[in-house]
Every structure is written in C-alpha cells, then in structure tokens.
Design a protein around this nucleic acid. Sequence first.
DNA 1: CGCGGGCTTGACAAAGCTCAAGACTTGTGG
DNA 2: CCACAAGTCTTGAGCTTTGTCAAGCCCGCG
Lengths: 256, 256
Amino acid sequence: MPRNNAHAADARHELAREPALVGLAALGLNDAAGAASLADAVARAYPVRARRELTSEGRPIAEPRMLLRGWAARVRLLPDGRRQFMSFLLPGDLIGMSAQPQPLAAATVIAVTDVVACRPPSIEETPALAGAYALSAALDEAYLLAQITRLGRLNAQERIADLLLELHERLTRNEMAQGNAFDLPLTQEVLADALGLTSVHVNRMVQQARRDGDLQWKGGRVTLADPAALARKIGRTPPRVSGMQGVAVAIVAPSA
Amino acid sequence: MPRNNAHAADARHELAREPALVGLAALGLNDAAGAASLADAVARAYPVRARRELTSEGRPIAEPRMLLRGWAARVRLLPDGRRQFMSFLLPGDLIGMSAQPQPLAAATVIAVTDVVACRPPSIEETPALAGAYALSAALDEAYLLAQITRLGRLNAQERIADLLLELHERLTRNEMAQGNAFDLPLTQEVLADALGLTSVHVNRMVQQARRDGDLQWKGGRVTLADPAALARKIGRTPPRVSGMQGVAVAIVAPSA
DNA sequence: CGCGGGCTTGACAAAGCTCAAGACTTGTGG
DNA sequence: CCACAAGTCTTGAGCTTTGTCAAGCCCGCG
C-alpha cells in the first residue's frame, strides 16, 4: 500500500511500481512534473472496503478520485431490484472527474473488492496531466460504447468473451495480467449483471467456453487460451482513441 | 435555414428561434457574449444529406460540430453486418468535442435525416460557453448510461417506451415537441438497431403499446398518451446531471 | 399505374429465463 | 483439525421472450 511519503526524487520509482501509474504512463504520460505530483497524490491514498459506495447516483460528487488498487464498478439499480453494471473501474481509472462546477453522479460507484483510492492532482495544479486525463476520459467513453454494442448486438457467448478480452487488455496495460492470465474478482452473478444476462445462463455459457477450450476460470483466476484468436473468433477490435504517435493505447497481447 | 449574417445585436433573437440554441439555453446558457458567438457560428452553418457520414469510426475527427437541424446518430457496424446505434443526436448536440489533441472517432456519426450543422465556437474563443459545453457532455454521458441500462435490463416493451420518453424529453427541451407529440423520423428498423431488437419484434411491441393506449405512431409522428404515467409504469427517472440551481435539465412534461 | 420501401402478420425455432435442488468452497468458531 | 454456515457454482426441466423466414399489404413517389 502506498503510505510512504513520496518525494519528487522517488517519482519515477513509484511510477514503475504502482499499477495505476503504469496505466497512466501507457496513456502517454511521460512528464516528470506530472509524475511527481501523482506520486504525491498516491502518498495520500486511503482504503475503501468492498461493497462500500464511492459515490451514489443522483447525489453531488464529493471529490474526484483515482483508483489505485482493487476493482470498483459503476452500477445502476432499478426500482424493482434489477441491477446493471455500466463499467468496471480498474487501478488508474478516474472517477467523477467533471468539468462541471456541481456535478451529480450519473451512476453509483461501488467498490467490488477492497480498494485503495486517492484524490488525483487537479488539472489546474498539474497541467502536465491534462493530456493523460483527456485520453483517459476518451478511453472511458469508448468502453461505454463497447458495452452498448455488447449488450445490444452480441449473444451470450460473445458478450462473455468480449468482456473478458476487454478486461485482459486493460489489465495488461496496467501490468496486472500475467501473460494470458489475470485475477478476476467477480462472481458470475456480478458478471451477469454487467452482461445483461442471468447468472444461470452465464454459468452455462462459461462452461461451454471451457469445453471449447477458449478459457480456464477457477478460484478467481482466468486464463484465456489465445486472446488474439478469441478476439478474431468474435470479431472484436479493441478501441482506438488517439491518433498521437507513441501513445500505446489498447495493446493486444501477442497470442500465446 | 440560418444564413443571415448575425450580429451581436441579433443574438438574443437568434437564440429564441433556433432549436439548437433553445436547447443550449435550457442547459443554463444565459450569457450575451456566448449567445453572440453562437449566433455567429450558426450563420456559418452547412447542410449534410441523409445517410452521409459526419465522422467515421477509427478515423481522425476533422472538426467539432454542432447539430442545428435534423437527426443524426452514433452507430457501430460489426464485421458481420450487425448494427448498433449508440445514441441519437438532436439539434443542439455537440459532436466530436474532445479535449484531446488528435482524437479518433469512437463511433461513426451518420445523418439520419437531412441535417444542418455548424462548427461550434471553441472554448478558447468563447469561455462563456465552457459551462454549457461541460453540462452538455455530462448529459451525453448520462444518456449513454441510460442506453446501457435499457439494453441490459429492460424488456422489449420497456425499451421502446423508455427511448420514446427520452426523445420526448430531449425534444421538449429544444421546444421541438408539441405537447405530448413529436416527429420521429426513424424507421422501425433503425429503432430496432438502437434497442437491440429485430424490426419484427419492435413492430409487434409497438402495436401492443398502441393497443394498450400508451401511444399513437403514424406517418413519422408519435403521440404519447401520458408521458408521466408511462414513465411511472416502466419505472423511468430522467437523468439529473447538475446540482446548480436554475439549470433546467431533464424537464418532465406535465401529464396530459 | 407500378415500384419500392417500410409495415404487418403467421408459423416455427432458438436463446435465454425461472424455479428448484444439490454440490462445492471458503471462512469461522469450537 | 473439524464442523458448520453462507455464499457460489452447477444442473435439470419447463417456459417465455425474442428471433427467423417468408409472404402479403400499404402508401408515397415518379
């Protein structure tokens, strides 16, 4: 956990270790000043327990946050109890960064696992981060569009594969994946509520994917047999969001 | 069509007539300077034919746009021909406004009807607009989240009602609705591709909604029998996006 | 008047849901 | 170290919603 008092001199060092900062670096952050103030923000991190809400739908957003460890999710609850996850938030993701003066949360943000978050440097304080923030916002939106396509036009098997590929891609960017494997701290029930399915059907389709040799999933750990082949099989193309050269967004892991 | 050369003196006048500007005004724009430069932008409007692409997915965004007349949509095509509409764009909506230096379009934007668009004043030129732009972006995102919930957790009937209510709400904000009625320039096929359904099923469900007395739909014109009651029936709550007092976002029309 | 796009309808098939029960894990307290 | 409880995962049977295919109709436009 980042609790040590970080100085500018440590900044690069921190950058290299903290998954959140690895992720931001992959978005094109390579500025020492930005790194220093990020390291500073990281030093002021605080924990949040699983199942706690970070923001609640319709209420004012207290302050922006950056997720450092653990998984969170944006979720909406319908009056009759149905639940829809809009997106998952991984280390490095920004929460509630809005240009508006008094933004209201458009969805509840809940900690899926125990989580560590911090208050990110504001753009005013650290203009060097503006680019990374803009890119992060654009990527966020691209993933929302991907979620819409998933729910609207993919069948159950495709939805599962597509989401797992997306998560693998994002975790790889943060160096939180180990080759084709990664930790997936979600129940099938949560996955179902993200994919617009029932947990029973998710279960059946996951088993079929296992039988087809597309993946292994046991004890919270997923291994994709061949991400590139799976992506081809379901016609997935990862989101591209910036035309700037040298910005490594949406890296596809080489097939095994 | 806005072709007359607008001066600052005309600004308020223009504001009162152009649906796009009415919509922006409802987002809290009440600054004379902003209005003048908007009127200026409007004076440089240009038409785009139905079915033409305004931006194409994955390509660089040429320039930001503001829609003034007609309908457009953000759409994604899958390799096998499946199609998903992410959102509909109405007069006053901004297209491709990104803080990024070289943004790529995350989805194709296509003109659904003949359309008139213009280049909106940049924030740098006209800081008075920053607030309205931020609010507009927030509202955009809220509608994306609504679309996700619709596709993930509503059944066919609820999806149709929910989308029609959303459109009615947005058109009302632009004063483009006449009470509970509004023009809907969409085929059932397009609606189906927005709702993640087939056109056959949309057709059946629309007919059922007619039988239930929830709506009329004939010749491109929809009348909702009682929007408030329909919203209650499907448990819909319109998005709220700002805590600023006096910002009239997401007005619900009074029930008939 | 005929053409074409969009709407409507029917019969049937498939995907996904519901309900219900049992098996397996994991963490906890004794 | 064991036994239990709670939460997850798995499986089956039957059902509902939505999709597919195919044909006919309607209406506006050239």
